[in-house]
Amino acid sequence: MSFHIEKIAELARLHLKPEEKTKLEKDLGAILSYVEQLKGLDTTGVETTSHVLNLENVYRPDEVVVSTVRDKALKQAPQSEASFFKVPKTVDKES
């Protein structure tokens, strides 16, 4: 197995300090070697587990209900305006 810590960190939206990178690279290497044991197991024809008790999908009627959660949640957000979360500009205007 091989992995590029920088690439994974980029995917996970994490900047790693040099000392963090060394330690995490070592830890991940050790954990991935440990889980190698699964490769030897014969799982031909075995289904994957998606729900432990094979629960069927659950549907509910699509009904409009009153909720106050939005306003309370927005009030606690790092930055909000009207009924929106506010973030720095993501798209530059065409010049």
């Binding site: 889980v35 699964l38 490769k39 197991l41 799982t43 075995v46 289904e47 994957t48 587990t49 998606s50």
Partner: peptide
């Protein structure tokens, strides 16, 4: 593979 071994 993990999810398969979970089934086992």
């Amino acid at each position: 593979q993990g999810q398969k071994v979970r089934t086992l």
